[in-house]
């Protein structure tokens, strides 16, 4: 399993240039794509997350790891689809309407992807209807970010739009971002709140795990 260890380590080290070839090498040797994902990338990203939480990794290191993972996934994805690999859940993620900030949301998306979720990144300044649309298409988690005190107040509109479309029960709704607090999240009817990208993974795992047992 030397290759899997190497892939894991390359993810941690942010080996942007070399990882695609290494993933291809593992595939060529007959390692299943899902194994490469779980034992190489997901395991590596877990470690990246702990380094971030421990104050050893910072935003640039996280973004470099994200780019490394993207390069690996570009090789891996067609094989995952062919193998019929299952994602933990599908996340529709975006920055709230009126807010153009991308980095925090991107870090959450990357950590969720690294944890085995399928990510639909709707970008920034996302209208509530777009989240609704993705839930209609099967997203099981809606994750909304806001950096500003003046845009945070738009996050509740996403929950309302899901209610109005009759889809609120189909997906969990989580929020985060600099000015957002747990109390605020509760006040707008969110199912979860996280103050860091790593905490977002824990919340998402808990909620979507719980969801699987929900007989809705």
């Amino acid at each position: 399993m030397a290759n899997l260890d190497e892939i894991r380590q390359m993810t941690i080290d942010g080996a942007i240039a070399g990882i695609a070839a290494k993933v291809q090498e593992a595939l060529d040797q007959g390692v299943a794509a899902e194994t490469i994902l779980n034992e190489g990338l997901v395991s590596g990203m877990d470690h990246v997350g702990s380094m971030f939480e421990a104050g050893e990794y910072f935003v640039p290191e996280m973004l470099i790891a994200a780019r490394t993972m993207d390069n690996a996934l570009s090789v891996l994805k067609p094989h995952l689809i062919k193998e019929g690999a299952e994602f933990i859940g599908t996340v529709a993620i975006g920055t709230v309407k009126g807010d153009l900030h991308d980095i925090g949301k991107r870090l959450v998306a990357m950590m969720l992807e690294g944890a085995g979720f399928q990510i639909i990144d709707l970008g920034v300044d996302v209208k509530p209807e777009l989240f609704v649309e993705e839930v209609r298409n099967g997203a099981t988690l809606v994750a909304v970010s806001a950096l500003l005190t003046t845009t945070m107040t738009n996050m509740g509109d996403v929950a309302k739009a899901l209610e109005e479309a009759g889809l609120r029960q189909n997906a969990r709704f989580i929020v985060g971002g600099a000015p957002v607090t747990e109390e605020y999240a509760e006040s707008i009817g969110a199912d979860g709140y996280a103050d860091t990208a790593i905490a977002a993974v824990r919340v998402a795992r808990d909620l979507v795990g719980a969801r699987r047992h929900d007989p809705v």
Binding site: G14, L63, I64, R67, D102, I103
Partner: peptide, 11 residues
């Protein structure tokens, strides 16, 4: 690009 800049401070 904002992300490219942060990445560049590393790579």
């Amino acid at each position: 690009d904002i992300e490219e800049w942060y990445v560049s401070t590393g790579i």
